[in-house]
Amino acid sequence: MTPDIAPADPHPRPPRFDVPSPAWDCHAHVFGPVGRFPYAARREYTPPDQPLAAYLRMLDAIGVRHGVLSQPSVYGDDNRCLLDALRAAGGRLRGIVVADVLAMDDARLEALTADGVRGVRINMALPGGLPVALLDDVGARLRGSGWHLEIVLDKVGSLPALIPALRRAAVPVVIEQMGSVRVAAGPAPAGFAELAGLLRDGAVWAKISHPYKISAAPPAYRDTVPLARELVAAAPTRLLWGSDWPHPRVPGPMPNDGALLDLLYDWIDGDRAIAETILCRNPAQLYGPHAGGGRTDEEGTT
């Protein structure tokens, strides 16, 4: 259990622009304490403890009110760490779990919804990722639950094969990491135009996040700006921003979360109205009070 990756920057600075309120960070993780929540035996990295309290301090420092915790691969389908954090956060956070929802009864689904869970994560970049043929079944199982599907692609070029299933999905679908695009693939990577088209048609949502995984440059990842702006131009009303705190397996220097929020402002060319749309209005639709009856803490705790 000895950590083999670095912790997050412990001194996040405020961003350089006035963050609209109540803003959401739609992609983050918490880890540990490892004595309570051990990692899966088969994993690709071992993080240090990065607890809820540290995450909430980061949100406060950058002026963001709400967060969404996404189940990291090091825990497999053991969601106890995430669920513990949701309960302790008093309604401030939502969660995306890894779980076999086809084997889940209604009582369990309702209990997780009451805890603040709003979706299930499907990582197609991992061995055993959900086969495309099962997307219909999972969507049908979640219909009416207030949950959505969150999909991690192995690469944006894999997206076209999923398009028929995504367009007929019974629940909202969120594509992570700008579709797992890479700047190194060139100015028009295969599958990226299809992602923009799906956004434009309202068929999916996408997280504009993980610039250090997309970029071929050091911070401040300026080479990501054209790609992000292409998605913003397609459909700002279908985009979500995520910090990816505490940045597990970040290549290169550990980013400062205030600087990552500044990068979002570059992606949207400083447009205040779009900032409010991406940081406040869009996430409220997916994670807000309508889903399963849970409420954010401005309206009362879950």
Score class of each variant (00 low, 15 high):
residue 90 G to D: 11
residue 91 G to I: 13
residue 91 G to K: 13
residue 93 L to G: 11
residue 93 L to E: 14
residue 96 I to Q: 10
residue 96 I to H: 09
residue 99 A to L: 11
residue 100 D to Q: 02
residue 100 D to W: 01
residue 101 V to C: 07
residue 103 A to M: 12
residue 105 D to S: 04
residue 105 D to P: 08
residue 106 D to W: 02
residue 109 L to S: 15
residue 110 E to R: 12
residue 110 E to Y: 08
residue 112 L to V: 03
residue 114 A to C: 01
residue 114 A to K: 11
residue 115 D to N: 02
residue 115 D to Y: 05
residue 118 R to M: 13
residue 119 G to Y: 05
residue 119 G to K: 03
residue 121 R to F: 08
residue 122 I to C: 07
residue 123 N to A: 12
residue 124 M to A: 04
residue 125 A to L: 04
residue 125 A to R: 07
residue 125 A to S: 14
residue 126 L to I: 03
residue 127 P to S: 04
residue 128 G to P: 01
residue 131 P to S: 05
residue 131 P to I: 01
residue 132 V to E: 01
residue 132 V to L: 05
residue 132 V to Q: 00
residue 133 A to F: 00
residue 133 A to Q: 02
residue 134 L to I: 00
residue 135 L to R: 13
residue 136 D to V: 03
residue 136 D to E: 11
residue 136 D to A: 07
residue 137 D to I: 05
residue 138 V to I: 03
residue 140 A to P: 06
residue 140 A to R: 15
residue 141 R to M: 02
residue 142 L to E: 14
residue 143 R to D: 11
residue 143 R to K: 14
residue 144 G to N: 07
residue 144 G to F: 09
residue 144 G to W: 13
residue 145 S to F: 06
residue 145 S to W: 05
residue 147 W to I: 01
residue 147 W to K: 00
residue 147 W to P: 00
residue 152 V to I: 11
residue 152 V to W: 11
residue 153 L to H: 08
residue 153 L to V: 03
residue 154 D to I: 00
residue 154 D to E: 02
residue 156 V to E: 05
residue 156 V to S: 06
residue 156 V to L: 09
residue 158 S to D: 09
residue 159 L to I: 04
residue 159 L to T: 08
residue 159 L to M: 08
residue 160 P to G: 04
residue 161 A to N: 03
residue 162 L to A: 12
residue 162 L to T: 12
residue 162 L to V: 13
residue 162 L to F: 13
residue 163 I to Y: 02
residue 164 P to D: 11
residue 164 P to C: 10
residue 165 A to M: 09
residue 166 L to C: 08
residue 166 L to T: 12
residue 167 R to P: 05
residue 167 R to K: 14
residue 168 R to V: 04
residue 168 R to M: 03
residue 168 R to Q: 06
residue 169 A to M: 06
residue 170 A to D: 09
residue 170 A to E: 15
residue 171 V to C: 13
residue 173 V to M: 05
residue 177 Q to E: 14
residue 177 Q to N: 15
residue 177 Q to T: 15
residue 177 Q to P: 09
residue 181 V to I: 15
residue 181 V to M: 14
residue 181 V to E: 13
residue 182 R to V: 00
residue 183 V to D: 12
residue 183 V to N: 13
residue 186 G to T: 02
